[in-house]
């Protein structure tokens, strides 16, 4: 099996490992690092459930080969809470009832997080654009948008 060694930072921790070159970032996060918060949905870039932040930008971890993440800084949903306290975005998702089954939520959070990092005061249209690549089959999106809006208003 063709292997490649990669070194990257995941949620602030340096990680080095050897992985088969066919593995995607999604596989390495979930299988090798046990970070199963990142979800596997469609595998083809349509649902956004696998979204993580790579070097400051939201990406589909199902469309990035693990080898391509060599040297990168990765943030997953597990890295949002600090010292046991939920990140404000997460608190608002709870407060606004933006979570039903929860499957899309890690992706929604990471897409919203990337948006806020780049643009601390996005308007409704910008929020919608940021999560346009994330499908949710439960909430109807409204509460998710409200939760993001509440986060950026404070």
């Amino acid at each position: 099996m063709k292997e490649i060694s990669i070194h990257f930072t995941v949620n602030g921790k340096k990680v080095s490992l050897n992985v088969p070159s066919r593995k995607r970032l999604l596989d390495v996060l979930r299988e090798d690092l046990g970070l199963t918060g990142t979800k596997e949905g469609c595998d083809v870039g349509e649902c956004g459930a696998c979204t993580v932040v790579m070097n400051g930008r939201a990406v589909h971890s199902c469309l990035v080969l693990a080898a391509q993440a060599d040297g990168a800084e990765i943030l997953t949903v597990e890295g949002l809470a600090q010292n046991g306290e939920l990140y404000p975005l997460q608190k608002n998702f709870l407060e606004y009832g933006a979570v039903q089954c929860g499957f899309c939520i890690p992706g929604m959070l990471m897409s919203s997080y990337a948006l806020i990092q780049e643009n601390p005061h996005p308007g409704e249209e910008e929020i919608k654009e940021a999560i346009a690549g994330n499908l949710c089959r439960c909430t109807g999106y409204k509460q998710i948008i409200q939760a993001v809006e509440a986060t950026v208003k404070r």
């Binding site: 939201a58 990406v59 897409s111 346009a132």
Partner: peptide
């Protein structure tokens, strides 16, 4: 094109 995630890559 695509979505934010697609355009980023």
């Amino acid at each position: 094109i695509g979505s934010v995630q697609i355009r980023n890559r």
